[in-house]
Every structure is written in C-alpha cells, then in structure tokens.
Design a binder for these strands. Sequence first.
DNA 1: TTTAGCACTCTCGAGCGTCGAGTGCTAAGA
DNA 2: TCTTAGCACTCGACGCTCGAGAGTGCTAAA
Lengths: 382, 382
Amino acid sequence: MNLSERKKGILSAVVELYVKTAEPVGSKAVVEALGSALSSATVRSEMSELESMGLLEQPHTSAGRIPTSPGYRVYVNELMRNQSISNDDAIVVNNALDGKLITRPYMLDEVGHLTSRLTKYPAYAMAGVTGMMSIARFDFINVDSYTFIIVALLNNDTVKNKLVHLTTPYNPAILPKLSAIFNASFTGIPENKITASLINATERAVGDTGGIVAIIAGFVIELLVEVKALGARVSGAVNLLDHPEYKDVRKAQQIIRYLSDTNELKKLPAPLETGEVKITIGSENLANELKDSSVVAVKYDAGGDTQGLIGIIGPTRMDYSKIASHLSYIAQGLSLLLSGAGAYHAGLYANADKPRDEDFNKEHIHAGHTKNNVGDDDFGED
Amino acid sequence: MNLSERKKGILSAVVELYVKTAEPVGSKAVVEALGSALSSATVRSEMSELESMGLLEQPHTSAGRIPTSPGYRVYVNELMRNQSISNDDAIVVNNALDGKLITRPYMLDEVGHLTSRLTKYPAYAMAGVTGMMSIARFDFINVDSYTFIIVALLNNDTVKNKLVHLTTPYNPAILPKLSAIFNASFTGIPENKITASLINATERAVGDTGGIVAIIAGFVIELLVEVKALGARVSGAVNLLDHPEYKDVRKAQQIIRYLSDTNELKKLPAPLETGEVKITIGSENLANELKDSSVVAVKYDAGGDTQGLIGIIGPTRMDYSKIASHLSYIAQGLSLLLSGAGAYHAGLYANADKPRDEDFNKEHIHAGHTKNNVGDDDFGED
DNA sequence: TTTAGCACTCTCGAGCGTCGAGTGCTAAGA
DNA sequence: TCTTAGCACTCGACGCTCGAGAGTGCTAAA
C-alpha cells in the first residue's frame, strides 16, 4: 500500500491509540499522539482519505475512527515495530518450560495454559505427526497364563503398550513366535496396510490361539491412528470476556463454542514454517464466527516428525507485535526443548517434585536424555 | 422441616415455577399452578410465612418470591419427585458410552463433554486412585546399545513404559540383572519407600553403569506419583452464560476462573459412596465463589482402586431432579463399563473406527477383554 | 496547502412519568 | 378462626426528552 509518510503516521497512531483505549480515535488525539504541529483539521482530512481507502472506519458519524481489518493489515505488514518479549514475560515462559513441562503427559494443556496466561487471550495448542507412522519393533511380555503385555516401539521413538487379559489360558511359548512374525510382517508398514488378509495370514502362520493375533493387530491399528491424530486443546477461553468487544455475551459464546470444536480448530489459519508467526485479521478469516476476531499462530518443532502449533484468538483490536513476540518466544522455547539437544539442557528430572534427594538428581543428569512415555491408563490421566 | 401440606404444595409450586421461568413467582401464579380453589390472598399469607421461615425471599417489595437455599434444600430433601432420565437422553448416554469412550485415552474429557452436553451446565470429571499404588512387575527391553525400554506393570493392571536413550553405550547383558533386582526390591512398595539409600544399594548390587538405576528409580517415582494423582477436567464452561443468573459477565467469569483451578475443584463437595448423588445448594457451599451456585456430583466406580467423580455446577435455580437423574445414569453406565464385566459387554473394539473388516471384529471379540494402555507420548496426546 | 471557525450529528446518561405486577393490610363473610 | 375481596402502596421496567460532550465535515481565509 502506497501511503504518504504522514498517512502512515496517522494510521499507526490510530491503531496504537485504539489498541490501548478501545475507544474510537479522534483527530485531536492523533495530533497529540504524534506530537505534530499539524492542526486537527488537517489530520481530519487525512483520516477522511484513509477512510475512503478502506483503512479506517467510523462506528457512527461524529465518532472518532477505528481501524478496519485492511487497516490493521497495513499496520502489521508495514508499520508495526517488531518488539521483543519483555524480561518479565520471558522469565514466566522460561520457568514454565524449564523442567516441569516436558515431564508431564498433558503437555498441550500446559502449553495452552502458558500461552493464555501470558497473552491474556484464549489460546489453543495442537500437535500432530506429519509423516507416516509405523511400528519399529514389537515385544511381548508374559505375565501369567491369561495375561501378556504388548510393547510397541514406534518409528518416532515413542513406546506404547497394552495389557491383554484372555478369558482362556494361552501358552506363553507362543510369544517368541508372535514376536518373530509381528516384527517381520507388521513393522515399518502404515496403518492402512494392515488388512484382513494380512491378519488372516498371520493367524495361520502362528496357528492362532483364540484371536490373539487379531487383538494385537487391532492394537496396532488403534495406536497408529491415535498417534497420528492431531490433538488440540483450548485454554483460557474465559479471557475473551475481559475484552469490551465481547461485552455482548452472545458474541463471546459464539467464539467459545467455535473454539470448543476441535474440527474447526484444525481449520484455523496456520503458518507454513516452524517459527513463522501467522496473523489473520478479522475479515481475513474464512470462518464467519471469526469475522470480528483475529488469530495469531506459530508453529514449533517438536522433534522427529512431530510438529506443534500454538495460537491465540482475540478481537481485532490487539497488540499484534506483543502477541507475536510472546508466541514466537514460546515456540522457540518449545522447539529447543523438544527437538533433540534441547531436551538435555532443559533438565529432565531436574524439577523438584521427583527426586527424593539432591545427589541422586544432579549426579546422574549426565546419564543421557530420556524420552518420557509414561502411558495413560484408562482414564487418560496419570 | 415441619410444614403443613398446603405450605409444601406452595413451596413446591414456587420452586418449580421459578426453575421453569427464572422469574419471581407471584401468588396468583401459584394458585394457577396448584389448580387450587384457594384465593391468591390466602396463598400470599402462606408465602409470607414461608418467607419468615427463611424458605422464600423477595428480590424487592412488590415482586414475587424466589426460593432461598434452605428453600431449595427442603424441596430437594422432602418434596421433589425423583424422575428418571428420559429415553432420548438415555440414548445419548448409551451412544456416548458404548464403545467409543473406553478406547480413548482422554476419557475424563469425554465424560465431561457428555455430562455438560446432556445437562447444559459446566461439568467436571475427576478420577483417581484411592489405594496405594505400587509396581507389580518390571521388564526391560533392549533396543540397541544406547537404548532400552522400561515396562512396568502396576498393581492396578495398568502398564507404563519409558524409552531410555543413553549417551554412552551400555551392555545389554545387564538387563536381566536389573530385572531381577528391580523385581525383587522395587515391586510392591509405595513411592515414598524409594529412598536414596535403596537406590544406592541397588546401584552397588548392579554395579551401576552410568546412572541407569537412578533413571529407572526416577521413572518409578514419577509414575507412581502421577498415577495416583487425581486428574480433573472441566467441560462446557460456556454453558454458564446461557443462564440469566450470570447475565452479569463478571459472575460467570468468577465461576469459570474458579473452575479452571484444579485444586479448587478437588475441594468441591463429593458424595461418599459410589452411585450416591450429592447436591450442594447455594449458601451451603463453602467456597465464596459458589454461594449463589449449586453443585451436583456423583461418584462412580472405575474398577480396581480407581474411583471417578462427575459433577456439574450451575445456578441454584436448577432442575435438581432432572440433573440428578442424568448424573446417576451416566455414573451407572460408567461403573458398569469400567468395573470388570461391564467392559466386556461394552464392546471393546466394537466401534467403527478401528476394525478394518467386520469379520475380524465380531469373530474375535470373545477372545477376552483387554485393558487399554496405549501410552502417551511427550505430547500428552495420542 | 493549511487552518480557524462553525454548524451539524450522534451517543450517552440523567431525570421523569407511566405502566403493571405484586404485595400487605383490613374488614367483612363463612 | 380461617378465607377472601378490595384497595392502597411499592418498586422495577420502559420509554421519553433533553442537555452535554465529542467529533466531524465544510468553508473561507491565510
């Protein structure tokens, strides 16, 4: 957009004042903010032109002006100064990421909470595997003559397990055979290659004993599907109510309901690259529910084939620069923490609630990094 | 409370009309509702007495009456007719519980969603282990010379695992030794018995190789703590905004903020017995935030030492009978599903998104019931 | 091109009267 | 003693007017 310097200054001033005060901005306020020697009348005529360019609008005659979505867009693309996260906020993020986060299973929740706490907006966090998932290795552990455990190592270094209780006793001697066959036929293949004929063939090869092969195959399919699924979490939706834009409760309800639909979340605008911040402003959103809201999202690298996304949703009146800096910083921290070397420095086991004595902790942290796969029980909670 | 039959009728009418309309109830409306031959003047004087007994109150002179917390209490204890869940609602619950639920890790979420969807109130779901947790059995699986998997079977039949990457190679021959020692010294003991001296002794016995024993011990402590922890989830908090009681957004915010604090959730009134419905009305709540709200909660049996709780929170103006019937029904369903035999009938593997062909599924369902321990990866999401 | 001046528009809140719902009281009737 | 018709009274909700204040667009002069 080709704007005179003066128009740029005025547009910036309007955006920044409006973000701060939530009140339509008048020509006089702009003059003050700019510390300019111009008169308000001049600014008025400039603002009038900015309005006819579609960058500003008036809620009603004789009110000040507020930025339109295109107005914000020009501001974000051309005028906004990138700010970096404040020290205090950086400390909040560091504390949250250091140690505690990575050891907990409900990481998406933690990330979401952190993000919404920091930004004061509803936040969403997603993570999913981009590549094909397969199983790298099977092990079977005999517990008793009715019970065994399946342990599967996935190609992204996570481990899944399942305890199987049979109603009729089985011969544990079958386990090595199962192991050989499953490691030969079921490793390295994606979930959609596990067909009835493969299962039947395997059953014949093992000489099936009451559906054990089918149970294992079912487990394999289940976990491959589940591991690939994009998990999504929303936190701090209530923060919406803090903003005057949602004084009309129905608007807030509409957005919160929208956010609670995981399928809709997945359709939200997402950045292409890790680390990139994607800002989608008001009318730029495809979803009707979000025509008055903005979405800021950033992608992070979670190691292996796994990528994560964090984002916030708020009114278009938003300090985009600050929010972007927050999200960027969190994403950077997460990428560092989750992809390879980061995990080591983050101090696995270095948080207070695990080690029983100091020595035990410090002494052995060099032992290596570990990937935490404490599994869920039936409650999805540990 | 010793009330004349007439007073009982009037109190019931006031409660029921108020629940339905959210408007203060006048004497004329009561007469109509009762279909009584009494005049409104008579009802007025009765209502006046009910007010002086503390069961009704007037928002302002010349308004109708609304029930007080004690008024609701008398109604709930003595006057309310227990209704049973409607057919339609029962079908909703059955569909939600049948198959889908049990196979998913995020069960508390599912339960919470179901409950809030059904009741139209914010719902919370918790689950936790009541007894002492310990590990029943250890297995170690060698992957390569830097990597092994710890598999631990807990005393409640859940399986947990962890993949350990070492920075220096180790000798896989150590694994049987580790297995023997951990199965001898670390099984059957609670997390607080795992002391530095036990770990040191074990390290000496194994001839430790770069902190492996400490890593395993850390894992054990971590998972015992985590498994015992009471998980809590809130769903459908937005539903609060539907009720006129929370037209003032700050009230809704206050409650939603309150609900988002897991620690506070744990302090909510809970029933003592499985299946029992606990209703806590308005001022009966200890938390100040809930003085104008009611909590209805029910406990269910999740098999083994595990118990779960579901509850809803809403304004005191609430159809207690209906809500209680909903919660009861869900709790019954869950108990059936999760404790023993229920799991079998619920049709594990019987949902559509897993089996690749029908035969595979139906043919083998008799093979036994399985306990699903598909573990979390670092993302807390599968 | 800029600006002072001015008429104009629109929102917001205060103040005020009306309306209607519902009450409490009283006195008469059963 | 209980019930009821009648009536005066109270109070919130609603709608109306009006003035204040903010901000505009236009015009004419610098």
